[in-house]
């Protein structure tokens, strides 16, 4: 979070200076007016969005999703793990260690890849933000269009990497040091 904040802060500073240099104080004022308008219009939506995110995070514990991932296989496994990924709370600093915690449990690689793509594409905790900060129409159309992606990726992996577990796949591609991150 600190790193993202620093990136945004420095980018905002650079672009604010650029705005002033390009368009003077009138363009700068216009920029701040647009920013303030967006902030005011989104304030209530943001509060509601974070209340939704908080409740989802408490409702769907890691333990529930952990059981879910280990129960299914085949096409059902692809769909269920993609959905589990979409429901899994937290950023990459939480879900990558969670995935690596399955090391040694002989979970097929396609289940893992479906979960990762499900998290990246579906992520339910991100939808309220997408609706409030981009546009409800774009969020709806984007989610419908991209819905099949994790399932297609999972099915391709199931077809071509069916015999690989996460451990064997990582050994095969050779350069991951998963053992250092084993949380199991």
């Amino acid at each position: 979070m600190k790193r993202s904040f620093l990136i945004i802060l420095s980018s905002a500073l650079v672009i604010t200076i650029m705005t002033y240099l390009i368009g003077g104080s009138s363009l700068l004022t216009e920029g701040f007016r647009v920013s303030l308008n967006t902030a005011l219009q989104s304030a209530l939506m943001l509060v509601a969005s974070f209340l939704v995110i908080g409740q989802i995070q408490v409702l769907l514990s890691k333990e529930v999703l952990d059981q879910w991932l280990q129960r299914f296989s085949g096409i059902k496994g692809v769909v269920m793990s993609a959905l589990a990924g979409g429901l899994f709370p937290g950023g990459p600093y939480i879900y990558y260690p969670f995935v690596v915690s399955f090391k040694g449990k002989d979970i097929p690689f396609y289940i893992i890849i479906s979960f990762l793509y499900g998290k990246m594409v579906f992520d339910v905790t991100r939808i309220p933000m997408e609706i409030s900060l981009v546009s409800p129409t774009v969020a709806l159309v984007r989610n419908i269009i991209t819905f099949p992606i994790p399932i297609i990726v999972g099915l391709i992996a199931e077809r071509y990497l069916a015999n690989r577990t996460m451990d064997s796949f990582l050994e095969e591609i050779g350069d991951a040091d998963g053992s250092n991150h084993d949380n199991s």
């Binding site: 945004i8 672009i15 604010t16 705005t19 363009l27 216009e30 920029g31 920013s35 303030l36 902030a39």
Partner: peptide, 12 residues
């Protein structure tokens, strides 16, 4: 910070 960045992008 993102709102400021977005506002400037919009006018720039």
């Amino acid at each position: 910070g993102a709102f400021i960045l977005a506002g400037m992008i919009e006018v720039l």
